[in-house]
Design a protein around this nucleic acid. Structure first.
Lengths: 222, 222
DNA sequence: CGCTCGATTGAGCCGCGTCAAAGTGCGTGG
DNA sequence: CCACGCACTTTGACGCGGCTCAATCGAGCG
């Protein structure tokens, strides 16, 4: 059993801090830093904490018995993760890039929800959001081809996390592939094809510039 | 805008009834009957009610712009649906077979949650359950071949809804295909192959008997 | 400068989708 | 009760999109 407060010693000093889990839902928490690919919590562990990304990026993952992995979601600054979970986590969370995360004891959250109906409602809203994301993910995997998936992925990133047309990808091609249920080769080919079609420009592998948003939206809908 | 109480007149008499949405979460509600393929609520409508299956079966669906549909889930007696949803439903619910459903005004639920922390917690647990199901669905679509998906589908049905090895399928091959993101032909071939392998016996198209559960589990994990 | 990991590109193959045609069961009406 | 019709299911032939295997390329870092 890992213990985040012990990790705090490994990862550097932790600070007590106000953690805003949602609108009207701020509680006292701790802050931790994780390095690239470091595990934040693992499937099956006691779900004693709820997390929020402060900086960097986090992925939530599940591994199949055959060794394949499926990334359930990427989480960026402001996103909450680990809230879904009963007694134990049902998935693993890892840092995609070096990340600062805030964490709050679940017991604190539970106590707050009992006394504060507004807080309980905020938690419910968060679950709605996560459920909606999971549903979109099902749609993405169920009813779209490779290039449509990649296009949808890029559009989602621009909409949520970037004010400009430039996207910084903190994750590898392997991460993208395991999120979209494709292979790295197929993802790479989709990027290349989009650049040929002048829909995007690959400044580098991890830095994409959206040239023609409409072209991507067309691809996504296909 | 459709109004369930008006539907009630169309569908027959409705009765006021205690509706148990979860452990320690029973409220006064109404009961309605829907016929096979009838719409219970549609994507985009005001989400004024939460539903629970009393008898029969219900599917939740989303349609793509290209006309393809994805079934997000099947709901059987005891299952709650329509709870996820903000102001409006984000998906459509239809009766797979003739179904009795209980419905409760969302305002009643909200009011209950404000005053009763236990009720709020029960609602949260329901959302956790739904989120877990959606995640399993992502895993199913992301990392499994056709026969593995069908095997997983059958096992899920046996585990949840059947005490014996006999499964009554209320849904068509098209429904199964749109849930598993396959074609009806591929689903049909998977069934046939399983029967050849003596894993199941197809008493009829809608009545499956599991002969070798281990074979199915082996297929599922593949 | 060279090593290593990640990304790209290419060739070939396989599983599932597509198209097409029987086959089956069930409800309806004669 | 039987005959018909329609909807659903099954089966077959074939093509294509994405996976596999393999080689090359490129960038970050010691």
């Amino acid at each position: 059993m890992r213990e985040p407060f012990i990790d705090a010693l490994r990862n550097g000093p932790s600070v007590s801090d106000a953690v805003a889990l949602g609108p009207g839902l701020a509680v006292q928490g701790t802050r931790l830093r994780f390095r690239r690919n470091e595990e934040i919590f693992g499937e099956g562990e006691h779900a004693d904490y709820v997390y929020r990304v402060v900086s960097g990026a986090v992925r939530t993952v599940r591994f199949s018995s055959d060794g394949r992995r499926q990334i359930l979601g990427f989480h960026f600054p402001g996103d909450v993760f680990g809230l879904d979970a009963g007694a134990r986590y049902t998935l693993t969370a890892e840092a995609v890039a070096d990340a600062d995360v805030a964490l709050v004891r679940r017991s604190v959250i539970d106590a707050l929800a009992v006394n504060d109906a507004g807080a309980a409602h905020a938690l419910f809203k968060l679950m709605q959001l996560h459920l909606g994301n999971a549903r979109e993910h099902v749609l993405l995997l169920g009813r779209r081809g490779a290039s449509e998936r990649v296009a949808a992925f890029l559009l989602k990133l621009t909409d949520r996390y970037s004010a400009t047309s430039a996207i910084d990808l903190p994750m590898s091609r392997a991460d993208i592939a395991d999120y979209l249920a494709l292979t790295i080769e197929t993802v790479s080919r989709a990027f290349t094809q989009m650049e040929r079609d002048n829909a995007i420009h690959l400044e580098s592998a991890r830095h994409v510039i959206v040239r023609d948003r409409c072209a991507l939206e067309l691809l996504e809908a296909a």
